[in-house]
Simulated scan of single mutants.
Amino acid sequence: MTDAETDTAPAADARPEKPAHLKKGRRAWVKRNGKKLVRKIAGYQAAQSIVPDTPKIDNAHFPWLHIFTDNWETIRDEAKAVLAFRDDIPAFHELSPDQYRLSQAKNWKTFILYGFGQRMETNTKLTPKTADLLANVPNLQTAMFSILAPGYHIPAHKGVTKGILRSHIGLIIPKDREKCRIRVDDTITAWKEGEIFVFDDTYEHEVWNDTDEERVILLFDFDRPMKFGGRLLNKTFLQIMKLTAFYQDPKKNLQSAEDRMEAAIRQADANMEAMSDPAG
């Protein structure tokens, strides 16, 4: 969950008002100065990178990606099982309040499988095979099913750090897939079921689902392959981030979301038992 809202959203998008608790002095100071720090270290991270510093990065640099394309239908089937609990899946901003400009109402839902490198044990009860596949990703940070409502637009924004890369694989894609797409810098890609790609989310990117169908992908973040100095800086940066509200709030909200999902799963199991009980 490295995305951070920026001031790059198109003027045509109505700007939601910032929640009051995000306006507090200390949080605003951390965010303002954090952005300055990120800009200063991005150049060093780029120089330390052992993969190209481009908006999209060729899959050939990540030979382990094939495990996802080889097993994409299994991942899709587990995503479909998750969608049975659609009403209990939180919107992105409900987990990460700082994403209030990107995520509105229930239009962008996120079912977290790994958060900050940690497997979400309750959620992955529904997705054991997908979780096992994700365990093969070197230095995995975050993984989720990203569920985008019909007609929704995620405004232009940039991620937090060049030390992390992002991958998408299409699972449930609208039939008119050319209208369901992502722009990264000046490159536009329409998702396709079973296809995977990697990009650097510190480049400006935005998403459109200009169809009347839901879009579901597996999204995961992992450490950029870098030389020793870059890896050390990235580790230090992420440790510092974990001390801030930008980490602490989502961590707390993730636990609450897992608790709600666990209750929903128990209720569903109880309902199934009641239906199968001949005495009932």
Rank of each mutant, 00 (worst) to 15 (best):
E204C: 04
K80P: 07
A84K: 15
D249H: 03
F237L: 15
I154K: 08
L22I: 08
H21R: 13
A79C: 06
T244K: 11
T187N: 03
H168T: 13
A9W: 09
D201L: 06
V51Q: 14
V160F: 06
S146D: 03
K179M: 03
H153W: 02
L238A: 12
L65E: 04
A84R: 15
D70C: 01
L243Q: 15
Q118A: 03
E178F: 02
R231K: 15
D277C: 02
M272G: 04
A9L: 13
N253S: 08
A84I: 08
D87V: 06
E5A: 02
A91R: 00
D269Q: 15
F111E: 13
K192P: 06
D212V: 10
Y152Q: 01
A91F: 07
K56N: 05
A4V: 10
K23N: 12
R86F: 10
L233V: 11
R183I: 07
M1W: 03
K125S: 08
D13I: 12
K109E: 01
T161C: 07
A268I: 01
Q118H: 09
D212C: 02
I57S: 10
R166C: 04
A91E: 02
I57T: 01
D201T: 00
A4D: 06
D70P: 12
K23F: 00
G170V: 05
R181L: 02
A268P: 12
F145M: 10
H66T: 15
S256H: 14
Q104T: 03
S276V: 08
T110G: 07
H21W: 10
E213W: 03
I196Y: 12
I41R: 12
G25R: 14
T124N: 13
D7G: 04
R183S: 09
A28G: 06
R177I: 01
L140D: 05
D70V: 01
F222W: 07
